[in-house]
Design a protein around this nucleic acid. Structure first.
Lengths: 207, 207
DNA sequence: GTCTATATTGGGATAGAC
DNA sequence: GTCTATCCCAATATAGAC
């Protein structure tokens, strides 16, 4: 589960922590206020006292975990360094993020499909602007320098990298049952895959 | 929405069709038997008459749409032809499948995360066996022939191709809000991306 | 602020007429 | 087989004592 607050001292944080775990595991519709209260060691009435409604509590949770995941996945692209380095570091670090936040990708994708209005607009656009100014800019520069192939589109490369990184974790139950391996074997496989992924991408884009 | 039965003549099929649309859109927990009945033009009692319980109705739906999506995505890999051709044809056809079944990937990934026990085991293993005997076998052969790089792992390549193909559609709400485009612009972007994706992969694996 | 008790609606499931 | 009416539990939300 996601550890949002290591040691919540006040009820408000304890509720948010418990709610995060339950919502991420069961989704908005599957989550029960009673279960959240139990996990927080409090009673239902307090959830409403602090967050008014299930819906408002959910939004608080969603915004928080969404930003967490984005921080974990996107921050590398905001550093200004050679593109190949960015890619290698990203794939080296992404596994840790995705293991820590196991269920987050599917949770976010699903809730966004259920209700596209929950997106945190401000965050998205400002975040992408930063990626544009660093990673995308760097790609164009290295295309000029003859390091990267001319035909490479920054946005598509970005989407490709995220796809290769995130999808296998989202599809973990499918993959494990397909191949007939258990969870730990799956994570071993992902671990072994890291370097290969960077090679896979770099091989594609180098001039 | 997914059109499972064009013109359902009998109630049983009408229910399954309506249930598919509702379950895929709202998930198991978010779906309402009443809404399914309304959409099918029948009453709740009939749903229970034909399918006993919400859970059983859901399983009937899930098994069906799961197999549909797999057919659409995996069948190309079961044809015996040069690997590069397989890849090009797959990316050429995948868009159509994923537009037709828009919400299916997230639906399936989410329900599998919610309850990993719903996997249809028999189907998976037999299906993968076929892919192994054709696509995987072909990769090994072309490695011998010096067409494909020695370091390429068939299973990982397979996962990579599916990731590149499916993830952007699963993350559609995120991508559109990120870039600030609408649905139709998104599909245009995906359409334009097809050829580039095949190039992206082939560039990576060719010797 | 924190609890217990309760109001109230929603929704899966069934009984029973036709 | 198909309907209406109803049962009954579950779940969000609130009232009110402390």
């Amino acid at each position: 589960m996601v550890n949002l607050n290591k040691h919540p001292e006040n009820p408000e944080e304890a509720i948010l922590k418990a709610a995060s775990e339950i919502f991420i595991e069961k989704g908005f519709d599957g989550a029960r206020m009673q279960e959240i209260a139990d996990k927080a060691g409090l009673n239902k009435a307090l959830l409403h006292y602090y967050y008014r409604s299930k819906d408002k509590l959910f939004r608080a949770v969603f915004n928080k975990v969404f930003q967490r995941l984005m921080d974990g996945l996107v921050s590398v692209f905001e550093e200004n360094m050679p593109v190949f380095d960015t890619i290698r570091i990203f794939f080296k670090e992404h596994q840790e993020v995705l293991i820590t936040y196991r269920h987050l990708p599917v949770f976010i994708l699903n809730e966004l499909q259920r209700d596209p209005n929950i997106v945190v607009d401000m965050f998205n656009t400002s975040r992408l602007k930063k990626v544009r100014n660093t990673f995308f800019h760097r790609i164009e520069k290295e295309k000029q320098e003859g390091i990267i192939r001319q035909s490479i589109q920054p946005m598509e490369l970005f989407i490709n990298i995220l796809s290769l990184s995130v999808f296998p974790y989202a599809a973990k139950p499918l993959i494990t049952s397909f191949i007939g391996i258990d969870e730990s074997a799956f994570f071993d496989m992902m671990e072994a895959r890291k370097d290969g992924l960077a090679d896979f991408v770099i091989q594609s884009i180098k001039a």
